Amino acid sequence: MDSKNVDDHTSTIEILTVVIDETFAITDQYDELIKLCYSGLAYYHTYERWEEMYAPYYSWIESQLKKGIDEGLIQSKIELSSLTKMIINLIESTAESYFFGNQQTTSVHDVKQQLLLFISSSLTDNQS
């Protein structure tokens, strides 16, 4: 699936695949800029501003997860806004660890597949 072709008929798992792919691509391409942003975040204590910038992204991912819940594809007992932030943080943290932390002992493809498996398993687990 081409990452630019996400529409109303795209499944939640396909959307998460695109989000993972794009997050890894952006993290790899803009690694120095991301590190610079983090250093400014620490220096200026602008976490609140960071959250404001992420609000549309959180909202969009949350709406995709809600769609999955409404369609019966996702089962989770975790509050939706918390779940959204957990997923985004996990994806970004994994990408950053891979590219910034010299943790490239496995292929990026394998890391992304394991990440998708972990997230999709947690979204379909009746216990979560």
Rank of each mutant, 00 (worst) to 15 (best):
2 D>E: 08
3 S>W: 15
6 V>K: 01
6 V>A: 05
7 D>H: 10
8 D>T: 12
8 D>R: 15
10 T>M: 02
10 T>H: 03
15 I>S: 01
16 L>C: 04
17 T>I: 00
18 V>S: 10
20 I>W: 07
20 I>N: 09
21 D>I: 10
21 D>W: 07
21 D>E: 15
22 E>Q: 15
23 T>V: 15
24 F>S: 09
24 F>E: 09
28 D>G: 01
28 D>H: 07
29 Q>L: 07
30 Y>K: 09
31 D>R: 09
32 E>K: 11
33 L>K: 13
36 L>V: 13
37 C>A: 13
37 C>D: 14
39 S>C: 03
39 S>I: 04
39 S>N: 15
40 G>Q: 11
40 G>P: 00
42 A>H: 08
44 Y>A: 08
46 T>D: 06
46 T>R: 05
47 Y>D: 10
47 Y>G: 13
48 E>F: 05
49 R>D: 13
50 W>S: 09
50 W>F: 10
50 W>R: 10
53 M>Y: 12
55 A>N: 10
55 A>C: 05
56 P>T: 09
57 Y>G: 01
59 S>C: 03
59 S>E: 14
60 W>L: 04
60 W>C: 00
61 I>P: 01
62 E>W: 00
63 S>E: 12
64 Q>F: 02
64 Q>A: 09
65 L>P: 06
66 K>T: 15
66 K>C: 04
67 K>A: 08
68 G>R: 11
68 G>T: 14
68 G>Q: 12
69 I>L: 11
70 D>I: 00
71 E>M: 05
71 E>D: 15
73 L>G: 05
74 I>T: 08
75 Q>A: 07
76 S>Q: 07
77 K>V: 12
77 K>D: 14
78 I>F: 01
79 E>L: 06
79 E>W: 00
81 S>N: 11
81 S>L: 01
83 L>N: 03
83 L>H: 03
83 L>G: 00
83 L>F: 02
85 K>T: 03
85 K>L: 10
91 I>Q: 00
93 S>H: 11
95 A>F: 02
97 S>A: 14
97 S>P: 00
98 Y>N: 01
99 F>Q: 05
100 F>W: 08
101 G>A: 05
104 Q>L: 03
104 Q>E: 14
106 T>E: 15
107 S>V: 02
107 S>K: 01
108 V>C: 12
110 D>C: 05
112 K>M: 11
112 K>D: 06
113 Q>H: 11
114 Q>C: 02
115 L>N: 02
117 L>Y: 10
118 F>Q: 08
118 F>Y: 11
122 S>C: 11
122 S>A: 13
123 L>A: 05
125 D>I: 03
128 S>F: 15
128 S>Y: 13
